[in-house]
Write a protein that binds this DNA or RNA. Structure first.
Lengths: 162, 162
DNA sequence: GCTAAACTTGACGAAAAAGTAAAGAATGCT
DNA sequence: AGCATTCTTTACTTTTTCGTCAAGTTTAGC
């Protein structure tokens, strides 16, 4: 249960664009790659995926570059994550069919809803965070995350109270 | 952000053991493998990892097999997941150092707390689920998960209210 | 229109994960 | 003691993912 390289790097590129947005600038591929320590080729591929998915817009030719397709405050992380690992799946959710195939073997197993439910919980947590919240100082971002973390703890106590 | 094969299969093997526990039985490697549709070799590897980590106990020789090291109600999924992907990491948490290395490049970036915080949220959600809750009918498990899901939704409304 | 900047796309090689195989060691039964 | 059963461990093969390269296409400016 970890974040993939695609997801992490893609997200980081988006944050760079969000930061540029506040200054009304657009970023060229080379700029993005340099700022995140990626190769231009690799960053290009990630940006292409996000461009295809309508998350960013590109302008070709001299003085071109990338900009966010929507304001950073309207882009939620669940959408970003979904797009960035949809690419590796190509077809329909491979994990699901894998699970479903297995669950045909052991009918009435308790695992399928766990896998699905787990993903739903993660998606739900991600949908609480927007790109705009990730711009700014690290201290601020940390505070935001801790707020969510605290709520999560409260979730725990509510469960045992039931 | 998806569950790995190790994690899913290992978890499923544990559920089989938990189910056997309610009848006071132990399961042989071949039995576990058959019930989950895995090869014996693959199941063996997973069980070995979990044995080494103290999650299950093994008995060799004729009429041997595996049992849970603790009651199913005392085994939480966060522990299971942690053990099952620690194996692929071998050394210290590779993901973290990876993130930290990157954050040296872009100092004061907003990503590091997101990656770390995300993992904490997932772990927190996983710690709410015990193995015992995964035994039983699929309908029951589904209901349990939905209860957690509902709390997660409430988390969302609490956030916006702030 | 020509040129240079910049994105686009498919193919390829390296690295990591997943799964398999086989030889080894411990245990209980006769 | 010897044998069958069952777990243990290491090494290998296959598959998937990750990252790079290089050739192609589009656009802006002179």
């Amino acid at each position: 249960m970890k974040i993939s390289a695609h997801e992490e790097y893609g997200l980081r590129c988006l944050v760079q664009l969000a930061r540029a947005e506040t200054k009304g600038e657009s970023l060229t591929l080379a700029q993005i790659a340099e700022r995140e320590g990626l190769s231009v080729a690799n960053a290009g591929k990630l940006m292409w995926i996000m461009n295809k998915a309508g998350l960013v817009q590109s302008q070709r030719g001299a003085s071109g570059g990338y900009t966010l397709a929507r304001p950073a405050a309207e882009i939620r992380l669940n959408e970003v994550i979904r797009i960035l690992d949809e690419d590796t799946v190509d077809q329909f959710c491979k994990t699901h069919t894998g699970v479903l195939d297995a669950c045909i073997h052991t009918s009435d197993c308790g695992i399928r809803p766990v896998i699905v439910g787990l993903h739903e919980i993660v998606q739900s947590a991600l949908s609480e965070i927007t790109l705009a919240q990730l711009v700014g100082t690290e201290a601020n971002v940390d505070a935001t995350l801790h707020k969510i973390q605290k709520l999560q703890v409260r979730l725990g106590s509510m469960r045992t109270a039931h």
